[in-house]
Design a protein around this nucleic acid. Structure first.
Lengths: 192, 192
DNA sequence: CATCAAGTTGAGCATATGCTCAATTGAACA
DNA sequence: TGTTCAATTGAGCATATGCTCAACTTGATG
């Protein structure tokens, strides 16, 4: 095996863990999947991460961060009203729902895993801040009248979570198209 | 071991499976937990159920049915406006969130398990019908003006799901009290 | 070139899980 | 009383997982 510096190897392991988790789902992903994908021995993984729980949490943290950053740049230069519609589209266009799968699986696993819980709470707060700010911007730009942007943001986030969770069930009554419409109608209800 | 008729034993096994699943969570519940709780051999379980997946699906189906029935009788004789507030309270008062845990875990597991997916889709449809009817009743009784009760019901269900899922995470920013307020404000937004 | 710290290995332990199957038990019935 | 068959047993197989640890390898350093 090629020899790497500690920092690089660590990074590479996290990257691979993200891929594995996206492919197999959090509950099904195992340390062996990661070491196999990297072609390294099992001991190497534990040399850098004391436990699978820690690696997993780190992977989810990084995945969540990069996803947030992606959306942030996507909507940064758009008028708020456009950005909001973009967000609804983006939620549905996620190919094969991979990112939603990651997010929802992680949320479920977080009910049992303290490390993951911390990661999810942080990510959740970040999403809330971003969406609440977006709603406030819409008000300032005159394209919306939302009395309580914080509450509205929580409602929107919960709605998206709930819809996504249902969409992922086979033959669910909620299709991506329906979900998108429900989100847009919710935004109208909020005063958008 | 006491000898039982096939039908009774089957029933008893499902009952015990529900208890075990409520206590340990779906992902953590194992056949051994059920047989141990019953004090029977492992073979007995597989004599009545071809696989753990089938028993598990049956247990979730029955749990969901009895929970729906419970709520149904709770709100049947109330005025719609009161019933709606009752529902919001009921969601939050679930002691230790056991039933939400079951519902959310099952939904997550349903992403991978076809049998569970069928159960969840049926349960979801039932909940939607019940809530949509409740909203329509509120309109008839003059306590609400909701243009599209079906869409409103989907939004409410998704909102509850999303809020519950967040609430279950340790140190989450959404407390039961906040969740209750968000649901009630959502109902107002819908025209209730 | 010798040394040494750090990267790396992988067999293997401990544990957990679903499920099988040959054997045993007991209740109902003739 | 004896027969029959469904109910029941439980050791054990196959598989999967996280993690350990003694040993090995390699690149940098003096």
């Amino acid at each position: 095996m090629v020899r790497m510096s500690g920092a690089d190897r660590r990074q590479q392991i996290v990257d691979t863990a993200i891929e594995v988790i996206l492919r197999r789902g959090i509950a099904q992903a195992a340390t062996r999947d990661v070491t196999k994908a990297l072609g390294v021995g099992s001991g190497l993984l534990h040399h850098y991460f004391p436990s699978w729980a820690e690696l997993r949490a780190e992977a989810v943290r990084r995945a969540a961060q990069s996803e947030m950053a992606e959306v942030d740049t996507m909507i940064a230069d758009l008028p708020a009203s456009t950005a909001i519609r973009c967000l609804a589209d983006w939620m549905v266009e996620d190919d094969d729902m991979r990112h939603w799968r990651l997010w929802l699986n992680a949320q479920d696993e977080a009910h049992r895993d303290t490390l993951l819980a911390e990661v999810m709470v942080t990510a959740l707060r970040n999403w809330h801040r971003m969406i609440a700010n977006l709603l406030r911007r819409a008000c300032e730009e005159g394209s919306a009248h939302i009395p309580d942007a914080d509450a509205a943001a929580w409602r929107l986030i919960a709605l998206m979570d709930g819809l996504a969770s249902t969409m992922l069930v086979k033959d669910a009554p909620i299709t991506p198209q329906v979900a998108r419409d429900l989100i847009l109608s919710q935004i109208k209800l909020e005063g958008g």
